[in-house]
Simulated assay, not measured.
Amino acid sequence: MTTSTAVSAARIFDGTRWHDNSALLISGGRVDGIVGITDIPAGSPRLDYDDQLIAPGFIDLQVNGGGGVRFGDETSAEAIHAITAAHARFGTTKLPPTLITDTPEVTARALEGGRQARSRRIPGFLGLHLEGPHLSLERKGAHNPSFIRPMTEEDLHAICGYRRASGFLLTTVAPENVTTEQVSALVEAGVVVSIGHSNATAATVSTYLDAGASMVTHLFNAMSPLGNREPGIVGAALDDGRVYAGLIADGIHVDPVTMKVALRAKFSPGQIFLVTDAMQTIGTSLREFELNGRVIHRNAGSLKLADGTLAGGDIDMLASIRFVHTVVGVPLESALSLASSIPAKAAGVDGHLGSLKPSYVADFVVLSGELDHVDTWIDGNRVVHA
């Protein structure tokens, strides 16, 4: 029988409740349980974090890059590892590298990179997120309009084939360029379908939810707004309990007051969760970079094209949690859940990720009382130490 390692801390948040002066027991990359300090099994190796806190590792479902690498510019398993490693420094323990709208050739290379990352068991790799190219030109944001196009049968076959053979896949689509029949086929294959970069009406969104879509990409951004006569995608997302919605919490993409209103208004069981939409600037001192031949400027926490269009996020997940906790006023346990158990539910991986329950993957983050990063553990291994 494998002996559990006991990782103790002043407080442990298991995804539902706090445990004071307790220890997280782990073995074989999995959680064995949480016990009081006095109940640690005799002979267990121990690691004490004293007055710090332990929480489930963060799950970020929209990450374009990090560590100087953008997924798409580079698509190899090594590039994926560079991205996951950059975000692990800020507590993210699982993420799907996100490919924004690009050519069929780049998309094919990205799918192959995902297959390689899975076969090599890259730490932190969850799967892939294809954000486009089947989006709306009217709500394209920073996506290159020359690459936006309707979904073909070849596209559908490639996406479904990846999901069946290689694991988790999330795709952002717009009703303008994807049919309900295609959405149903994607969902039947196990693909998580998110609506985004679209000018769809609320009624259209409802039809696509009926077809199996279950998520909305970066709520409020690049989508039809909540209006007095047309609720748009925003209204549909808040009102329909079938849908989860990602939210970029940097105070730039969405105003803090708007965040408060949305968090209060969201009808369950679907919930709002945090995403970073992070670009390759995370963990670097980069001041600018190119995106499909266009220069993106980094300034005061924002990434913009020359015309002022936002082009992804310049924030990590831990900073996002601090923002919603200290600025928006979300209780700490709820803020932590917005980055762990809720995205796990949205992605359909909550049976083994997002919480510190027995038999769950031992992904967790250690934080100071001031919410500074201390350590990150992925699959039961300490991968980052402050």
Rank of each mutant, 00 (worst) to 15 (best):
T3W: 07
S4M: 07
A10S: 04
D20E: 15
D32T: 10
G36Q: 15
I40V: 15
L47N: 06
D60E: 02
L61M: 12
G66C: 09
S76G: 13
A77G: 14
I80E: 09
A86E: 09
A88M: 15
T92R: 07
L95V: 12
V106W: 05
R120Y: 02
G124A: 10
S136A: 14
R139M: 13
N144C: 07
P150Q: 09
M151D: 02
A165R: 15
F168W: 10
L170F: 05
T171G: 05
V183D: 06
S184K: 14
E188C: 03
V191E: 13
V193I: 10
N199E: 09
G212L: 12
A213F: 12
T217Y: 10
G235L: 03
A237L: 08
A237R: 02
G241W: 11
R242Y: 04
Y244N: 04
I248H: 09
I248D: 06
S268L: 06
P269G: 12
G270S: 11
Q271H: 09
G283A: 04
E288Q: 15
N292H: 15
R294F: 01
V295I: 14
H297A: 12
G301D: 03
S302P: 00
K304P: 00
T309P: 02
T309N: 00
D316W: 14
D316R: 04
L318D: 02
A319K: 11
V328T: 05
L336G: 10
S337W: 04
S337Y: 03
S340V: 12
A344Q: 00
H352E: 13
G354K: 11
S359H: 15
V361K: 15
G380W: 09
